[in-house]
Design a protein around this nucleic acid. Structure first.
Lengths: 179, 179
DNA sequence: GATTCCATGTAAATGGTTACATGATTCT
DNA sequence: AGAATCATGTAACCATTTACATGGAATC
């Protein structure tokens, strides 16, 4: 996933590995972390394979490597971004894709969001089934806390569904928050 | 983390690897997945190190290995469960611990939950700072979708805080859900 | 002058997944 | 009879973290 996130962050501007790390923290850092130990080798690999172009500069006495996506890199990125929903994908990779959805035409991204929605809806129904099986006989603390994480999952599923329809309709983001 | 989850699931009852996998799916499957490729070697390792005891049985013609936590295993589990909050811990490991919080005395778990709360509160404030920096100049789709994931993170943080105080006070779980 | 930030990287270890391999039992 | 479920495990692979290693530039 790091490969695509890095690509997405140098689509239109050249950045150093250090810059990219910063932007990852600010942007997707909420749900995805990258260390230098994974980032620098990834940038090297992507450059070797022709997905990134690299320019080495000497700012003062210091060496700096700036990366930009090549046409090949952009194409690979957009293919990843618009590829159909994969059941085995992590929720982090879904969120990472949505982070970059501004790069996709409205109809493409909206039909992808609808795929995501129906998937989260399936998850929600599975959680509801488990909840029905277990919620009626909470007899001790152990059972209470075991079930508690299920309820957080249920609430997160409801929120995610609300969020999907919110962003699909392009509603103002501030209106999404419900305290 | 798998080690501790497996231990927690055989604290009071003997289970096979297959059973444990099932219980992981039903219980913490919401936020944590384990494959046999990680589970079976983990059970073997925990047995070799004395954290689990194993009984091999022949049910009909089929071999079955049932695992239970030893006293050593229980002690290690409880130490993990009650260990002070670690900033570098993933949210999954926090949730996994809470799943088993019924095993802890009320005051221990409540002070741990309060630690978790203040940590999530810090995350919330960080997200709010980023939001303030970025929310006023959404000029195109790219910026809209980039920010959208931040708002989901904000909403999740609010929910998690509400959830913490909910379970700390032992309120009925059904009352937690806000659609 | 010290601290923080900018900047790059490697090596070893960790913690898994995926695919493969096997076969009995139970349900329909 | 066939499908689904129960049941165990290995080997190769993968992505990533952690710790290490270095040093210049800017700020206080």
């Amino acid at each position: 996933m790091l490969d695509y996130i890095a690509l997405g962050m140098v689509l239109d501007k050249a950045q150093t590995g250090y810059d990219i790390k910063k932007e990852i923290e600010m942007g997707v850092g909420n749900f995805y972390k990258a260390s230098y130990g994974s980032l620098y080798p990834a940038l090297k690999k992507l450059t070797n394979r022709g997905y990134l172009s690299m320019i080495e500069q000497s700012h003062g006495n210091r060496l700096k490597k700036s990366y930009t996506a090549t046409e090949l890199g952009k194409a690979a990125f957009l293919e990843w971004l618009s590829s159909p929903f994969d059941v085995n994908a992590s929720s982090e990779s879904l969120l990472a894709r949505i982070y970059f959805f501004g790069e996709l035409p409205k109809d493409t991204r909206n039909s992808l969001i609808k795929e995501y929605e129906s998937y989260v809806y399936q998850i929600l129904r599975k959680l509801q089934v488990i909840e029905k099986q277990l919620s009626d006989h909470i007899e001790n603390d152990r059972e209470y806390f075991e079930l508690s994480t299920l309820y957080l999952g249920l609430q997160n599923a409801y929120n995610t569904l609300r969020w999907f329809s919110h962003i699909r309709e392009g509603k103002p983001l501030k209106e999404f928050i419900q305290k």
